[in-house]
Design a protein around this nucleic acid. Structure first.
Lengths: 340, 340
DNA sequence: TATCCACACGCAAACGTTTTCGTAGCGAAT
DNA sequence: ATTCGCTACGAAAACGTTTGCGTGTGGATA
């Protein structure tokens, strides 16, 4: 079990100095062709690879970007990560992924851990608890230390940094409009509690759409789900005997459960009740009926976020004080759940 | 935008030596109480955090474990990662996740990248291409450099290392037995091509189960799907006019598509055809009918893998030459797709 | 023969830590 | 007055790199 070979060892074997080895490997003209070849042959033989840690220390950068997300077992977030990985790898960056599990404390710990040398910058979607607590000191601090942060999806308005989001309001509006254009008039919405930023925005979009059709919204058609793990019960209770012709759900799971409940109560989707969801995930594609949804283009979000971050990391330090908010287009993916 | 504060800076400010600061922060008795307090106050004020990179370099370990998986947008793998993260964080380890995207080259690149200083050990599920190519030099090499590797799920028999797997054969057998015990006799299997290790094993399990019931298997009931992206077409073609009373699918997607195709051809699941899948993911839980599946207990796999790896990392270097293969129990989760 | 210039290479600092060992200063004991 | 022993601290090496600069060797030139 031979250990990793270092410059020092190569130098010793070949009876030259460390610097000579280093330069030879870089094909420096300072070193004679002869020596260069010898060193390179030796290095290849022993499978020399420069030690990243040492390089990081020397260069004061790690070529690593830290991604912190609320949940790892979550289709949307993993697609975003896919996008991040893609451009990161193209540009020679590593990606460290940590999940906060929606816990504020874990988010702080992860962030501080990565901030103290492991990553050059962050791509972040904040935990539910953080949004609730409104304590953002960890984010502020890492930014103060000069590390760029790009937030996506679950962002924080009060923090000034680069952001990549979708227009949740507009997306929800698009979804609701679609239902309205199909003739639906009694549209229920299954959404989250208000402190979830995206939930609130989507609710707003729903209300906007109704307003644009001069429909007065009916509070009894709005369900704000608290506990996603027991959403089915909540939805069942809510939908019972409700006179509706459509449902807009702010995520896949709500949509699927709505369909389930509706079907159990004898209502067919899409014939009697149309359903639109949010997030184009596995369920949306494979459920029967397949779901009409607003797609968030997660991979593109990841790509954009990574691009912005890397640009900032490699940019000329100075004019970095400009922050932009990129809004990714959403699109309506029509499937069976709203077909005539 | 103040930069991160280092020992050196604190030392300078307080007009003491670097070593004094370091010791003071560690509450060394060598340092007077007075100085200790002064240093600590200063450090807290400036939010001093030791630089991980420097520590890694000094200690020759990174306290980071590298996870390489074939796909990041994949429910099973993310649950495994969840498990890994859980125990890693408990034990003060960081987790770097890289996806190989089922590409051999990317697997090699990621592995070498992480091996050169970024991680102390690996948790690995190999890419499809790697299994096909049978080129394992990168894994061998990192092991030769003294870095422990734990493989899970998609493992390589030829490589001697710790492994965490399920008994795919047994799981498939359990699934098939379940169908047999319900009275099904013409059971089709939707599986993968043979070079996918888990696919082959599951196929074997299916055959074993049939054999134990003295049923001669019928090759025309076996479909080895090549291209997962177009599995629906393949399944449709395969299932057309086939006289069967059950389907065993080696993953969720195949199962769901089978149900879809069956339903389109007028056959009801579970009434006329029973279906069992593999992997207890989102689709299995929420599809209608919900899927009876073999659960692989991904989180537990991750936890076990991480535990083994960390034990090896912190173990007394010497007796590390023992490798174990942990077999995680599978379980049958009965749902609607096989209900009477 | 003395001077000069390439050439080819080595020295040393730096990145931020930790830790071993050395030592200045000082009060007390002989 | 000398030595001892303690307290409180500093110097330096080490981890593995990169790189600016210094330098010895040799041949060519004057």
């Amino acid at each position: 079990m031979k250990q990793k070979v270092t410059l020092k060892q190569i130098a010793k074997e070949l009876d030259v100095s460390i610097s000579t080895v280093s330069k030879a490997l870089k094909d420096s003209v300072e070193i004679s062709l002869d020596t260069r070849q010898k060193v390179k042959a030796f290095a290849k033989l022993y499978n020399y690879k420069p030690n990243n840690i040492a390089l990081s220390l020397k260069n004061r950068k790690t070529k690593t970007i830290g991604v912190i997300i609320p949940e790892i077992v979550h289709h949307f977030f993993t697609t975003v990560i896919g996008g991040v990985e893609k451009v990161a790898n193209e540009k020679g960056y590593n990606v460290i992924i940590c999940s906060s599990n929606n816990s504020f404390d874990k988010e702080v710990i992860n962030m501080e851990m990565l901030a103290s040398g492991s990553a050059d910058g962050f791509i972040l979607s904040v935990a539910k608890e953080t949004q609730l607590k409104k304590d953002y000191h960890h984010i502020q601090e890492t930014m103060n230390q000069g590390m760029p942060v790009v937030m996506f999806d679950r962002i924080i308005d009060e923090i000034v940094c680069d952001k990549v989001i979708i227009d949740d309001t507009k997306g929800a509006q698009m979804a609701t409009n679609h239902l309205l254009s199909l003739g639906c008039r009694r549209i229920a919405i299954l959404t989250t509690v208000d402190y979830i930023s995206v939930g609130k925005l989507r609710t707003n979009g729903y209300l906007n759409a109704l307003r644009s059709y001069d429909i007065v919204h009916d509070d009894s058609l709005i369900l704000k789900i608290e506990d996603i793990d027991h959403c089915e019960e909540e939805i069942e209770e809510f939908l019972k005997d409700k006179d509706i012709d459509a449902v807009f759900a702010v995520n896949e799971l709500f949509a699927v459960n709505a369909i389930k409940v509706l079907r159990n109560s004898g209502k067919n989707v899409p014939e009697e009740v149309r359903v639109v969801g949010f997030t184009d995930g596995i369920l949306a594609k494979h459920f029967i009926p397949s779901l009409t949804v607003i797609s968030q283009h997660g991979e593109e979000m990841g790509e954009r976020a990574a691009t912005i971050l890397i640009d900032k990391l490699e940019g000329s330090d100075d004019l970095t004080e400009e922050y932009k908010t990129v809004i990714i287009d959403t699109s309506l993916v029509e499937r069976q759940s709203t077909k005539k």
